[in-house]
Structures are given as structure tokens and as C-alpha cells.
């Protein structure tokens, strides 16, 4: 398993989760965990996904998701879990 974290931050609207999961499904990315809240008036969603068997590489996924983000008016990024692990865990 190769875990990555997708974060979506922006103004809430209809279809954000759909927009993101559609891309994940098309690229064979499995969702392991998902949580969302409204923080300081901002829609904040965090997904933990498995990209082990993903069709495209991280660069492709990252570009596709951020393009979708532009269409939805939110910031979407995908980052390997290791960056958060290394920064916040000893």
C-alpha cells in the first residue's frame, strides 16, 4: 500500500466530493478514509487514499486534481503521507 493524503480547501458548494472521487475512481485510486468539516467558513476535506495501483503517477494525479479544483473553485492537492508523518511523528 502506498498512502497519500488529498486535501480539499475552499468555499463549499454542491459536487466537490463527487468531482474528486470521480477522478480517483477513473484512476483506480482507493479511498481509505475520508473526513470533512467546515472550518472558519471554509470547506475542508481530507482523504487518505491508496495510490499503489493508480493508473497515472503522482504528477499526473496532482495535475488532474488541481485542474478539477480550479473548476470547482477550491484548492485540491495530493501529497505522499510521508511528508506529514516525518513532520509530525518521531
Amino acid at each position: 500500500m502506498k498512502k497519500a493524503i488529498i486535501s480539499v480547501i475552499g468555499k463549499d458548494k454542491v459536487g466537490i466530493i463527487y468531482g474528486v472521487t470521480k477522478i480517483l475512481s477513473e484512476n483506480n485510486v482507493n479511498v481509505l478514509d475520508i473526513s470533512q468539516t467546515i472550518m472558519q467558513d471554509l470547506f475542508t476535506m481530507m482523504m487518505i487514499v491508496d495510490i499503489e495501483n493508480a493508473k497515472g503517477d503522482m504528477g499526473f494525479l496532482s495535475d488532474t486534481l488541481s485542474k478539477e479544483g480550479e473548476a470547482l473553485g477550491v484548492d485540491i492537492r495530493i501529497q505522499l503521507e510521508s511528508i506529514f508523518e516525518s513532520m509530525h511523528r518521531i
Binding site: 486535501s7 472550518m39 506529514f84 509530525h88 511523528r89
Partner: peptide
Amino acid sequence: MINKKETLETIH
């Protein structure tokens, strides 16, 4: 597991 606050801190 990494929590949301930590993720957002890094992104920020």
C-alpha cells in the same frame, strides 16, 4: 494516523 490539524498546519 495523521490528523486533520497536522495536515492543515503543514499545508499552511
